[in-house]
Design a protein around this nucleic acid. Sequence first.
DNA 1: TAAGATTGAGTCTTCAATCTTA
DNA 2: TAAGATTGAAGACTCAATCTTA
Lengths: 185, 185
Amino acid sequence: MTETDSPIDHVARLIAQRRRETPHIPLEGMEILARARRLDRMSRIWIDAVFKKHKLEAGEFDVLASLQRSGPPYSLRPTELYRSLMITSGGLTDRINRLTRKELVRRSVGEIDARSLLVQLTPLGLQTIRAAFEDDMRAESELLGALNPEEQRALSALLAKLLLSLERRPEAPGYEEAQEAAPAS
Amino acid sequence: MTETDSPIDHVARLIAQRRRETPHIPLEGMEILARARRLDRMSRIWIDAVFKKHKLEAGEFDVLASLQRSGPPYSLRPTELYRSLMITSGGLTDRINRLTRKELVRRSVGEIDARSLLVQLTPLGLQTIRAAFEDDMRAESELLGALNPEEQRALSALLAKLLLSLERRPEAPGYEEAQEAAPAS
DNA sequence: TAAGATTGAGTCTTCAATCTTA
DNA sequence: TAAGATTGAAGACTCAATCTTA
């Protein structure tokens, strides 16, 4: 195997099969996007097990992690949340309702705009996401063990370059929001 | 920006924010897995539009594409399909029912095992997936335009290496099946 | 008028139980 | 007994319509 040849993973077998059926169609798209999709789905098998240990669904974890990331007082507006999570506003309402029932978040009064209530972590929510996030990152690092640090850096840099180009497309939903949300860092 | 620095995409901003909140937790996992997830979700925005043009849902497209890839007579057993697609058997039953209603597949008699009926493309199904698949690959190639051919090869090789390591984990569901399904190619 | 959030209907999925055949 | 496929219930999401406030 040379430096640029890919190992024979599941997607490589699918591509080889398809080349015989539709040899006239270039398959570069599959090489990357099908693998990104499969990497997400496969890694979820182990990551979901981590969430389960903390009695969380993946979608609930994402909301709690966003709130923790924002720092004290651990509160965000629903619109910020659903745009960042790439789900609809209706979907987020459901997640918040579930997390409220579990007493991991509450809707607190927003000072700025009376149309929206801030979503805020409860002390139990903060404690839960602290433990769950640390476990999650440990599991994720472990899943990436097949790549050395240099390969990991190369991979994340290529993914970031590709993602940035998609985020900058005029037709990309949420583009304006992503821009103005850019922190000084 | 140096060779190994990542461009400041959305995930980079999330990571910078989080480093301030939980500086003690290594975040290498997010660098790659969060980006893979986001790449899948963002690219789907454009890809789903292609499917819609052919009046297909993403899940339906995947079934048709699997059948086409298998070559004449374009038929597979349901178990092969749901394992390859990483969905449950119940989920596949529904997809087949929907595709049957659209007259894109049919359940034909399997000669080997009377417990299962082969799922087979109809002529309309073959015609549909031929056009849809070509459009899909064109769209996917276009989405990857920000990376030059060399970068694309490097990215797919790294993804393949990582995926192969996940597929080889003893705990990976479907591992045995994936192995025996490996074609000579 | 527009923006933020919620609601209800419809869709696609998983999960567990079931039926049939090996 | 086990494997393949289906069913029905429950879950989480999208979409479009609605309500409230800017």
